[in-house]
Structure formats: C-alpha cells, structure tokens
C-alpha cells in the first residue's frame, strides 16, 4: 500500500491570547508556538500503522516555508519514508482549493493507493483541501474518517456523523481520506527515529517544478479571498455580566435557574 500524507504546520492557539495583526488579514504569530495540525497527526499515524501492518511506503508532503520541515521531520521520525515540501511565494493567499491544486500537482506523478489529510485544519478550518484534491485527481474520497479497513483493492471506511454515529462506505482505490481526530493513538517519535529522519532529504518543489502557472495558484487561483479578521461583535442576545466574581457568579446562577437550565 503506497500512501501519501499531507501535513500542515499551524500555530497553537488553544491556550494563547490571539491578536489580529496590523494587516487585518492574519493573526500576530510572533509569540505563538507551532506544531502539526492535530488531525494531520492522526493521519500520519493511520498511514504508518497501515504500512506496519500491510507494508508499503509513506510519503509526507507539506506546503509551507522552511519551518514546516519540523513537522515533516517528525512524521518521518515516526515512520515516513520520503518527504516533499512545496514552497513558492506564488502560493501566498491560497484558499483550500488553491492549496489542493498544488498538492494534487505534487502527488499526481507519485504511485499512491491512499492519500491522507486531516479532516480539518486547526487554523483556517476550511475542511476543503482533501476533498478538493480528490476531485482534481479524479479519485474517490471520504471525509471525517474514523475507521479504515482495507480489503484488496477496495477500502471500507467509517465516517463520523452526528452523535458519534459511523457511516460505512466502500470504495475503490486509489482514494483520498480526510482523517478525524481520535481514529488512533498517535505515537511519540523515538530518538532513533528522529536521528534517522535527520539524515533524510526533504525534496523541495516550486510552482514551476509542479508545472503550475501563477494564475492557477495563490490568491489568483483561489475562489475564496480572505478579506479581514474581526473579533466577534457583542450581539443583542448576549448579556455580559460585569463586576466582582462573587457578584457575577450569583447573578449567573440566578439567570440559569430562571431560564430552567439547571
């Protein structure tokens, strides 16, 4: 089973203060730490588990600057075989579709049975790249995958629906699967794996290397354009309680009781 895993480097915003930067189109990332997108981490693990069970290869691909090598190396350290990083100033301003075009161009000449992506990116949350890539490559896809069973040249996958329900679908390979968090237990990279990964070359490809024209990618090739970020506006339905904690807590308790919510 030859597999490709797409990984993205994202800022960790879960426990940090997030501020919009002066351009209004991005957040101030100066003080944030970065890591692999959570769902992509599960995608890497799924590919490596399949490789360990059934044999094959895992190629790691990321679109991003040199700092993305960190996430690529960790995926290699866990068991990835080869790696490609797509970097070009022309990729700036890409939406999910433009990213998918670049990734599809990178994988189309590789031998692959399954392409994995995370179901959703922690930063922009488009959830579009995997599905768009499948469309561009003309192969099957399934999104929010929480279970993978391989039977010959077919694959049976469980897709997570509302309330934890799984929908099972069967499809022919090759296919793109966008992986939901919780599908497996991602491993830690061992130091031995880290040392091996450090010796591997990460192949660098520009838009020209991929045969992509500037009009197809980046902002020019995007269907959606990011205009600006704004903090949520306090709506009329929202009531903000102000004052000392003791006072606001007792008022909150009163409101919850009054509305019959507790």
């Amino acid at each position: 089973m030859d597999m490709v895993v797409c990984v993205k480097r994202v800022p960790d915003t879960a426990e940090s203060e997030v501020h919009i930067d002066s351009s209004g189109r991005d957040i101030d990332k100066g003080r944030l730490s970065f890591g692999i997108n959570e769902a992509d981490n599960y995608a890497v693990e799924e590919a490596i588990q399949i490789k360990e069970r059934d044999g094959g290869t895992v190629t790691v691909i990321s679109l991003g600057g040199k700092e993305s090598d960190e996430q690529i190396r960790m995926a290699l350290a866990k068991g990835g075989d080869e790696a490609v990083r797509l970097e070009d100033p022309a990729f700036a301003g890409s939406d999910g579709l433009a990213i998918a075009k670049a990734l599809a161009a990178a994988v189309k000449d590789l031998k692959y049975d399954i392409i994995f992506t995370g179901a959703l990116a922690d930063d922009d949350a488009f959830g579009a790249v995997g599905v768009a890539m499948a469309e561009l490559l003309g192969v099957n896809h399934a999104a929010y995958v929480k279970k993978v069973e391989i039977a010959g040249d077919k694959i049976k996958v469980g897709r997570e629906l509302e309330g934890g329900l799984l929908e099972f679908v069967e499809m022919d390979l090759p296919a793109v699967l966008t992986i939901q968090t919780g599908i497996n237990e991602p491993r830690y990279a061992s130091f031995k794996g880290i040392k091996l990964a450090a010796k591997k070359e990460i192949e660098l490809k520009s838009a020209a290397d991929l045969g992509l024209d500037a009009s197809e990618i980046g902002e020019a090739g995007a269907w959606a354009k990011l205009e600006k970020f704004t903090p949520p506006v306090v709506g009329e339905m929202a009531e903000i309680l102000e004052g000392e904690p003791e006072e606001t807590a007792s008022r909150l308790a009163g409101i919850l009781k009054e509305k019959g919510l507790v």
Binding site: G35, A189, F191, I194
Partner: peptide
C-alpha cells in the same frame, strides 16, 4: 543539534 530540539518536542508531548 536539531535532533535534540525534535527530541525535546517528543519528551514534552509525553
């Protein structure tokens, strides 16, 4: 070295 930086991330995760 970079391998130690990567190892630090692994240990920190653990």
């Amino acid at each position: 070295e970079p391998v130690h930086d990567d190892f630090r991330k692994t240990v920190r995760e653990f």
